[in-house]
Amino acid sequence: NKFNKELQWATWEILNLPNLNEEQVKAFIDSLRDDPSQSANLLAEAKKLNDAQA
């Protein structure tokens, strides 16, 4: 389904953001699992944090 694909994509993207530490990655992945419908928003937040920590 749509959420499953978005969840998989967001998870992959977050795992590959180079500037997030392990705790941050875990927190984003946990949030994705808690509410897959928020995957686009969570991915945007993760990318923003990744850029800020570059």
Score class of each variant (00 low, 15 high):
residue 1 N to K: 04
residue 1 N to P: 15
residue 2 K to Y: 10
residue 2 K to L: 06
residue 2 K to F: 09
residue 3 F to K: 15
residue 4 N to R: 03
residue 4 N to E: 15
residue 4 N to G: 13
residue 4 N to I: 15
residue 5 K to I: 03
residue 5 K to E: 15
residue 5 K to N: 11
residue 5 K to M: 02
residue 5 K to T: 10
residue 6 E to I: 14
residue 6 E to L: 14
residue 6 E to D: 10
residue 6 E to A: 05
residue 6 E to W: 14
residue 6 E to G: 03
residue 7 L to P: 02
residue 7 L to E: 08
residue 7 L to S: 03
residue 7 L to A: 13
residue 7 L to F: 11
residue 8 Q to A: 14
residue 8 Q to Y: 09
residue 8 Q to I: 10
residue 9 W to L: 14
residue 9 W to G: 03
residue 9 W to R: 13
residue 9 W to A: 14
residue 10 A to F: 14
residue 10 A to N: 03
residue 10 A to P: 03
residue 10 A to T: 13
residue 11 T to N: 04
residue 11 T to G: 02
residue 11 T to L: 10
residue 11 T to K: 04
residue 11 T to Q: 05
residue 12 W to D: 15
residue 12 W to Q: 14
residue 12 W to T: 12
residue 13 E to K: 08
residue 13 E to A: 07
residue 13 E to P: 02
residue 14 I to T: 01
residue 14 I to V: 06
residue 14 I to R: 00
residue 15 L to Q: 14
residue 15 L to P: 01
residue 15 L to T: 09
residue 15 L to W: 04
residue 15 L to Y: 09
residue 15 L to I: 06
residue 15 L to E: 14
residue 15 L to H: 06
residue 16 N to D: 04
residue 16 N to M: 11
residue 16 N to K: 09
residue 16 N to H: 12
residue 16 N to A: 11
residue 17 L to G: 00
residue 17 L to M: 14
residue 17 L to E: 00
residue 18 P to K: 09
residue 18 P to F: 08
residue 18 P to S: 06
residue 18 P to H: 12
residue 18 P to E: 08
residue 19 N to V: 02
residue 19 N to I: 01
residue 19 N to P: 00
residue 20 L to P: 00
residue 20 L to Y: 00
residue 20 L to Q: 00
residue 20 L to F: 01
residue 20 L to V: 02
residue 21 N to W: 07
residue 21 N to G: 08
residue 21 N to I: 06
residue 21 N to T: 12
residue 21 N to H: 09
residue 22 E to D: 13
residue 22 E to S: 11
residue 22 E to K: 14
residue 23 E to T: 12
residue 23 E to W: 09
residue 23 E to Q: 11
residue 23 E to A: 11
residue 23 E to P: 06
residue 24 Q to G: 00
residue 25 V to D: 00
residue 25 V to N: 02
residue 26 K to A: 13
residue 26 K to H: 14
residue 26 K to Q: 10
residue 27 A to S: 14
residue 27 A to R: 11
residue 27 A to G: 13
residue 27 A to F: 08
residue 29 I to Y: 03
residue 29 I to P: 00
residue 29 I to M: 07
residue 30 D to R: 11
residue 31 S to G: 09
residue 31 S to K: 14
residue 31 S to H: 11
residue 31 S to W: 12
residue 31 S to A: 13
residue 32 L to I: 07
residue 32 L to N: 00
residue 33 R to I: 14
residue 33 R to H: 14
residue 33 R to W: 15
residue 34 D to H: 13
residue 34 D to Q: 10
residue 34 D to G: 12
residue 35 D to P: 01
residue 35 D to W: 08
residue 36 P to Y: 03
residue 36 P to S: 09
residue 37 S to A: 12
residue 38 Q to V: 05
residue 38 Q to P: 01
residue 38 Q to M: 13
residue 39 S to V: 14
residue 39 S to I: 15
residue 39 S to P: 04
residue 39 S to D: 02
residue 40 A to F: 11
residue 40 A to Y: 11
residue 40 A to I: 11
residue 40 A to L: 14
residue 40 A to N: 11
residue 40 A to G: 08
residue 40 A to M: 13
residue 41 N to M: 12
residue 41 N to A: 10
residue 41 N to W: 11
residue 41 N to L: 09
residue 41 N to Y: 11
residue 42 L to Y: 06
residue 42 L to A: 05
residue 42 L to M: 08
residue 42 L to T: 11
residue 43 L to M: 08
residue 43 L to G: 01
residue 44 A to Q: 14
residue 44 A to E: 12
residue 44 A to N: 07
residue 44 A to H: 15
residue 45 E to T: 08
residue 46 A to K: 00
residue 46 A to E: 00
residue 46 A to F: 02
residue 47 K to D: 02
residue 47 K to I: 08
residue 47 K to G: 04
residue 48 K to V: 15
residue 48 K to R: 12
residue 48 K to W: 06
residue 48 K to H: 09
residue 48 K to Q: 11
residue 48 K to D: 07
residue 49 L to D: 02
residue 49 L to A: 06
residue 49 L to T: 09
residue 49 L to N: 02
residue 50 N to M: 01
residue 50 N to Y: 01
residue 50 N to Q: 02
residue 50 N to L: 01
residue 51 D to H: 07
residue 51 D to S: 08
residue 51 D to Q: 11
residue 52 A to D: 08
residue 52 A to M: 13
residue 53 Q to K: 04
residue 53 Q to N: 12
residue 53 Q to F: 07
residue 53 Q to R: 05
residue 53 Q to W: 07
residue 53 Q to D: 04
residue 53 Q to L: 10
residue 53 Q to I: 10
residue 53 Q to S: 08
residue 54 A to M: 09
residue 54 A to H: 08
residue 54 A to E: 09
residue 54 A to Y: 07
residue 54 A to R: 08
